[in-house]
Amino acid sequence: MNVATRDAYGRALVELGKKYPDLVVLDADLAKSTKTADFAKVFPERFFDMGIAEQNMMGTAAGLALAGKIPCASTFAVFATGRAFDQIRNSIAYPGLNVKIIATHAGITVGEDGASHQSVEDIALMRALPNMTVIVPADATETGKAVAAAVVHEGPVYIRLGRPAVPVLFDENYRFRLGRAEILRRGPDAAIFATGIMVYEALKAAETLAGRGVDVTVVNIHTIKPLDVETISSLAMKTGAVVTAEEHSIIGGLGSAVAEALAERCPVPLVRVGIRDRFGESGKPGELLEAFGLTASHIVEAVDLVLQRRVCGK
């Protein structure tokens, strides 16, 4: 079954709105797309459409947080983190305000709208900000739980969601733990650290590799910041070969975060699957993932490559 993470977000907001009277939602003329319109219907007095003015939306969210509200501000990831970066930096992250920036339409799977709407650098931007927590859910179930966890968490949070319907990996019993890497499959030969929609691709890749006698560990890194450095370095040490996978630039995203952590703690051969320092383009999401090298078979190739490097190094 496929469900878009933004649909799960819309549903989660309505539930959380009932539970938390201080929850307020802001959008920048994309409520139908980000699914905050679901919340607006049920709680019109706590919903603010701020129009096509993202900078003011982030500043207003900061003010609402200063007065004790829990604002969720939503728009497309490229506008949230790019257009309003300085407002997130100075009005929200620096004072450490309790604003949740929940952005949809991240990555190239936006599809036909093309590069202007495809954020390939939002994780990098948000990760560089002190005080900011960065979460990239892998499916609809995790999205609902991550949003709930973010609302309870005190401080600024960035949650990255997508546009298209994606496979549901977890059932309702799944427990989301902020800041913890979740090991989904264990194998001694290599470790794949994946985030967002690439978690599913990593699991598929692991199946393919298992068919060839290569048993890999697959880890869901839903929280990019704070990064679970303990789990990542211990698995790197155990397997001696690491692949990262993300629908984001290899500069500044999960691949960078893992490389930074391992370089200091436990350097092992590493191959990053991600967008290789280029902008996106128009196309169908599936075609784009193929063209940009973001599928299970690309992860398989990356594992093969990292295993060769491990042999070289020995």
């Binding site: 307020v24 706590r46 500043g59 900061a62 003010g63 007065a67 004790g68 100075n90």
Partner: peptide, 17 residues
């Protein structure tokens, strides 16, 4: 340029509450 937006948010919260 950011203080007026912040003030607006505080003012809106006052209205809600």
């Amino acid at each position: 340029g950011q203080g007026l937006s912040i003030s607006l948010g505080i003012a809106l919260a006052g209205k809600i509450d």
